[in-house]
Protein backbone atom coordinates (compact mmCIF):
# COMPACT_ATOMS: atom_id res chain seq x y z
CA UNK A 1 0.00 0.00 0.00
CA UNK A 2 1.39 3.40 -0.99
CA UNK A 3 1.24 6.58 1.11
CA UNK A 4 -2.46 7.53 1.70
CA UNK A 5 -3.38 5.46 -1.36
CA UNK A 6 -6.79 4.51 0.03
CA UNK A 7 -7.68 8.16 0.77
CA UNK A 8 -6.57 9.32 -2.68
CA UNK A 9 -8.81 6.63 -4.14
CA UNK A 10 -11.82 7.64 -2.09
CA UNK A 11 -11.42 11.40 -2.53
CA UNK A 12 -11.01 11.04 -6.29
CA UNK A 13 -14.01 8.75 -6.59
CA UNK A 14 -16.19 11.09 -4.50
CA UNK A 15 -15.07 14.29 -6.26
CA UNK A 16 -15.71 12.88 -9.73
CA UNK A 17 -19.10 11.57 -8.64
CA UNK A 18 -20.26 14.72 -6.86
CA UNK A 19 -18.92 17.27 -9.37
CA UNK A 20 -19.24 15.39 -12.66
CA UNK A 21 -21.67 12.56 -11.85
CA UNK A 22 -19.08 10.20 -13.30
CA UNK A 23 -18.20 6.83 -11.84
CA UNK A 24 -14.53 6.09 -11.53
CA UNK A 25 -12.98 2.80 -10.56
CA UNK A 26 -9.48 1.89 -9.52
CA UNK A 27 -7.38 0.51 -12.37
CA UNK A 28 -4.08 -1.27 -12.60
CA UNK A 29 -1.09 1.04 -12.87
CA UNK A 30 -0.61 1.51 -16.57
CA UNK A 31 2.19 0.77 -18.93
CA UNK A 32 4.45 3.55 -20.18
CA UNK A 33 2.44 3.56 -23.43
CA UNK A 34 -0.70 4.14 -21.46
CA UNK A 35 0.85 7.03 -19.52
CA UNK A 36 2.07 8.59 -22.76
CA UNK A 37 -1.59 9.08 -23.68
CA UNK A 38 -1.99 11.57 -20.86
CA UNK A 39 -2.21 14.77 -22.89
CA UNK A 40 -3.15 17.14 -20.09
CA UNK A 41 -1.53 17.39 -16.70
CA UNK A 42 -2.47 19.49 -13.69
CA UNK A 43 -0.38 20.07 -10.58
CA UNK A 44 -0.77 21.88 -7.30
CA UNK A 45 1.86 22.43 -4.65
CA UNK A 46 1.51 21.88 -0.93
CA UNK A 47 3.95 23.81 1.24
CA UNK A 48 4.41 24.10 4.98
CA UNK A 49 4.83 21.28 7.46
CA UNK A 50 4.68 18.89 4.49
CA UNK A 51 6.06 19.85 1.09
CA UNK A 52 5.14 18.26 -2.16
CA UNK A 53 2.96 18.22 -5.23
CA UNK A 54 -0.29 16.60 -6.28
CA UNK A 55 -0.65 15.89 -9.99
CA UNK A 56 -3.58 14.69 -12.06
CA UNK A 57 -3.10 13.51 -15.63
CA UNK A 58 -5.58 12.27 -18.21
CA UNK A 59 -5.98 11.73 -21.97
CA UNK A 60 -7.63 14.27 -24.27
CA UNK A 61 -10.93 12.38 -24.83
CA UNK A 62 -11.51 12.33 -21.08
CA UNK A 63 -10.39 15.97 -20.81
CA UNK A 64 -13.08 16.97 -23.32
CA UNK A 65 -15.72 14.94 -21.52
CA UNK A 66 -14.84 16.47 -18.14
CA UNK A 67 -14.90 20.06 -19.49
CA UNK A 68 -18.16 19.41 -21.33
CA UNK A 69 -19.89 18.19 -18.17
CA UNK A 70 -18.37 20.78 -15.84
CA UNK A 71 -19.31 23.73 -18.05
CA UNK A 72 -22.58 22.33 -19.50
CA UNK A 73 -21.37 22.45 -23.08
CA UNK A 74 -23.77 19.76 -24.30
CA UNK A 75 -21.59 18.48 -27.10
CA UNK A 76 -20.67 21.96 -28.38
CA UNK A 77 -17.14 23.09 -29.20
CA UNK A 78 -14.72 22.94 -26.29
CA UNK A 79 -12.02 25.58 -26.04
CA UNK A 80 -8.62 24.63 -24.68
CA UNK A 81 -9.09 27.18 -21.90
CA UNK A 82 -12.12 25.30 -20.58
CA UNK A 83 -10.22 22.02 -20.67
CA UNK A 84 -7.49 23.69 -18.61
CA UNK A 85 -9.99 25.27 -16.20
CA UNK A 86 -11.75 21.94 -15.65
CA UNK A 87 -8.51 20.13 -14.88
CA UNK A 88 -7.42 23.04 -12.67
CA UNK A 89 -10.64 22.71 -10.72
CA UNK A 90 -10.31 18.94 -10.23
CA UNK A 91 -6.64 19.27 -9.29
CA UNK A 92 -7.52 21.99 -6.79
CA UNK A 93 -10.25 19.91 -5.16
CA UNK A 94 -8.11 16.79 -5.02
CA UNK A 95 -5.15 18.75 -3.64
CA UNK A 96 -7.35 20.47 -1.06
CA UNK A 97 -8.63 17.16 0.23
CA UNK A 98 -5.20 15.54 0.32
CA UNK A 99 -3.85 18.61 2.15
CA UNK A 100 -6.38 18.03 4.93
CA UNK A 101 -4.68 14.70 5.72
CA UNK A 102 -1.18 16.15 5.96
CA UNK A 103 0.57 17.75 8.95
CA UNK A 104 -0.60 21.30 9.71
CA UNK A 105 0.00 24.06 8.87
CA UNK A 106 0.07 23.48 5.12
CA UNK A 107 -0.77 25.84 2.28
CA UNK A 108 -2.14 24.99 -1.13
CA UNK A 109 -0.85 26.82 -4.20
CA UNK A 110 -2.88 27.72 -7.26
CA UNK A 111 -3.14 24.89 -9.76
CA UNK A 112 -1.02 24.94 -12.91
CA UNK A 113 -2.01 23.02 -16.01
CA UNK A 114 0.04 21.85 -18.98
CA UNK A 115 -1.28 20.59 -22.29
CA UNK A 116 1.68 18.46 -23.20
CA UNK A 117 2.74 15.25 -24.82
CA UNK A 118 5.55 14.99 -22.29
CA UNK A 119 5.05 13.65 -18.80
CA UNK A 120 5.10 16.39 -16.20
CA UNK A 121 8.32 16.40 -14.20
CA UNK A 122 8.65 17.94 -10.76
CA UNK A 123 12.38 18.27 -10.06
CA UNK A 124 13.55 17.77 -6.49
CA UNK A 125 10.72 15.48 -5.51
CA UNK A 126 10.06 11.77 -5.31
CA UNK A 127 6.90 9.85 -6.10
CA UNK A 128 5.21 8.57 -2.94
CA UNK A 129 1.89 7.46 -4.45
CA UNK A 130 0.54 6.90 -7.93
CA UNK A 131 -3.06 5.78 -8.21
CA UNK A 132 -4.61 4.83 -11.54
CA UNK A 133 -8.33 5.09 -12.24
CA UNK A 134 -10.67 4.25 -15.07
CA UNK A 135 -13.62 6.35 -16.18
CA UNK A 136 -15.77 5.55 -19.21
CA UNK A 137 -13.05 3.34 -20.65
CA UNK A 138 -10.27 5.94 -20.24
CA UNK A 139 -7.50 5.73 -17.68
CA UNK A 140 -6.29 8.67 -15.60
CA UNK A 141 -3.92 8.97 -12.67
CA UNK A 142 -3.41 10.95 -9.50
CA UNK A 143 0.10 11.16 -8.08
CA UNK A 144 1.57 12.53 -4.90
CA UNK A 145 5.19 13.63 -4.89
CA UNK A 146 7.11 14.62 -1.82
CA UNK A 147 9.88 17.19 -1.88
CA UNK A 148 13.25 15.64 -1.24
CA UNK A 149 15.24 17.49 1.40
CA UNK A 150 18.71 18.19 0.11
Amino acid sequence: MQFIEKEIGEYTKNIWKSILSLDVNPAQNGSEDNENNFAVAGCIQITGAWNGTVTMEYPMPLARQVASIMFDLNGGPIENELIQDALGELTNMTGGNIKSLLPEPCFLSLPAVAVTDKAMRIPGSELVSKVMFQCNGENFQVSLLKRVDE
Binding site: D85, F107, P111
Partner: peptide, 20 residues
Amino acid sequence: NQLSLPMVDLKGTPLHFPFT
Protein backbone atom coordinates in the same frame (compact mmCIF):
# COMPACT_ATOMS: atom_id res chain seq x y z
CA ASN B 1 0.78 38.12 1.25
CA GLN B 2 3.00 35.08 1.08
CA LEU B 3 5.46 33.89 -1.51
CA SER B 4 5.56 30.19 -2.43
CA LEU B 5 8.69 28.29 -3.27
CA PRO B 6 9.66 28.61 -6.93
CA MET B 7 8.88 25.77 -9.32
CA VAL B 8 11.10 25.12 -12.33
CA ASP B 9 10.48 22.87 -15.31
CA LEU B 10 13.73 22.20 -17.16
CA LYS B 11 11.79 20.68 -20.06
CA GLY B 12 10.06 24.00 -20.60
CA THR B 13 6.55 22.59 -20.51
CA PRO B 14 4.23 25.56 -21.20
CA LEU B 15 2.09 25.98 -18.11
CA HIS B 16 -1.37 27.53 -17.91
CA PHE B 17 -2.78 28.94 -14.71
CA PRO B 18 -6.55 28.38 -14.55
CA PHE B 19 -8.67 31.05 -12.84
CA THR B 20 -6.09 33.73 -13.66
